[in-house]
Amino acid sequence: MRQTVLKSIWITFILLLIFVTTTAAASKEKQRAELRQKTTSTLKMLYEKQPSAKYAIEHAAGYAVFNNTGFKLGILGGSHGRGMAVNNRTGQEIFMKMQEYQAGLGLGIKEYAVVFVFANENAWTSFVEKGWSFGAQATAAASDGVTGDSLDGAVMVSPGVWVYQMTTKGLAAELAVKGTNYYKDKELN
């Protein structure tokens, strides 16, 4: 009798473990599929607003697309989001997160998308492997200063890295200093 009870408990434990593992894997794949769909729709919206971006992204070493939600209330604010980076040469997908902190005057909530374009493999690899943080160093110039390359409608944030930003929903008035971190999503990779 005792062995039967122990076997029943053991079988129940194994079945529960299989169920939890299968559910977690399905949930992760659902999240990945959602990020792929958001990436596709964000790129479509970018191409409608900035047609030259399609050629730039297709011919770049890689790109990353993030969909973010931000808030600003008084002197504090922040944003969070998820996205994915894609290596155009290998097809590799890296799922990532974004976190941003702000100090400055403002009020509002907004949803926005950020699209990074990486001119070379080193820029893409550095972004996905080391993560990336930046604040006020983004410049208004869209030229790399070396080859004369530029992307219409994009801002160069470092050598070989351009960014498009689009507000998708909401309105925010702000004057802020931001610290933004992009890093791998350990749960989805």
Rank of each mutant, 00 (worst) to 15 (best):
G74W: 11
N87R: 05
Q102V: 14
L76C: 07
E100Y: 06
L76N: 06
E93S: 04
I75C: 03
M98A: 09
G91Q: 10
G83M: 05
A56P: 09
A56G: 07
Y55S: 15
G77K: 15
G83N: 09
N87I: 07
G83K: 05
I94H: 03
L73P: 01
V65D: 00
T90S: 15
R82W: 11
I57L: 12
G78Y: 08
I94M: 09
V86F: 10
M84R: 10
E58P: 01
Q99Y: 09
I75K: 14
G81R: 12
A61E: 02
G78H: 11
M96V: 04
K97A: 14
S79W: 12
I57D: 01
A60V: 04
K54Y: 04
M98I: 15
G81K: 11
A60G: 03
Q92S: 12
M84H: 01
N87K: 04
A60M: 03
F66N: 14
N67S: 14
V86S: 04
L76T: 15
N88H: 02
Y63C: 01
A64F: 06
N87Q: 04
V65P: 05
V65G: 01
A85R: 00
G81S: 05
R82M: 13
M96L: 13
G62H: 03
R89A: 14
Y101I: 07
G78D: 12
A64N: 02
H80A: 14
M98T: 15
A64H: 00
L73D: 03
V86A: 04
G74Q: 11
Q92Y: 08
Y101A: 12
I94K: 10
G62W: 03
G70Y: 10
F95R: 05
N88L: 01
H59S: 13
I94G: 02
M84L: 14
V65Q: 11
M98S: 15
F95H: 03
G77N: 13
Q99V: 06
T90D: 13
G78M: 04
G81I: 13
I75P: 15
Y63T: 11
Q99P: 02
L76P: 04
Y101F: 15
R82T: 15
V65T: 10
I57Q: 02
T69Q: 15
A61W: 00
G62Q: 11
I57H: 03
H80R: 09
G74P: 09
G62P: 07
G83W: 06
F71L: 13
L73M: 09
N67V: 09
G77D: 04
I94W: 06
L76G: 05
A85L: 00
G70C: 02
E100D: 10
N67T: 09
G81M: 14
R82I: 03
A64Y: 06
S79H: 09
Q99S: 14
F66P: 11
N68R: 12
Y101T: 10
G78R: 07
